[in-house]
């Protein structure tokens, strides 16, 4: 039986202000679905300002490049935004994780 997780996934928020030319990353928030994420972004990052364009993207859907291309220490282009181990879900019964 799969237990429903109660944690909401992470969304990244991008805003374009009234006089802005393009969307800018302003932070992240948690929501259960994209519609909820949009509403939360409006509340949290614009304080309900009209005329601000909002994009929300599930963090898991973002593919990011490495800004420092001189580091083959990590996997090449196409890695996730947050590369650190704890961001990835590990089942409970895997030891030493």
């Amino acid at each position: 039986m799969t237990e429903i997780r109660s944690e909401w996934p992470l969304f990244e928020v991008f805003l374009r202000g009234k006089r802005g030319l393009n969307h800018v990353h302003v932070g992240s928030l948690h929501a259960a679905d994209p519609q909820m994420a949009l509403r939360h972004a409006r509340d949290l990052y614009t304080r309900r300002n009209e005329g601000v364009s909002i994009w929300v993207v599930a963090a898991a859907d973002i593919t990011a490049s490495s800004p420092d291309e001189k580091d083959p220490f990590f996997a090449p282009a196409g890695d996730k935004v947050y590369r650190h181990p704890t961001f990835y879900e590990i089942p409970d019964d895997v030891p030493h994780m």
Binding site: L10, G27, S28, Y82, H84, P85, T86, F87
Partner: peptide, 11 residues
């Protein structure tokens, strides 16, 4: 949100 960029989980 800033802490999560370091791999922390809010829950």
């Amino acid at each position: 949100s800033a802490a999560e960029t370091l791999g922390a989980d809010r829950a």
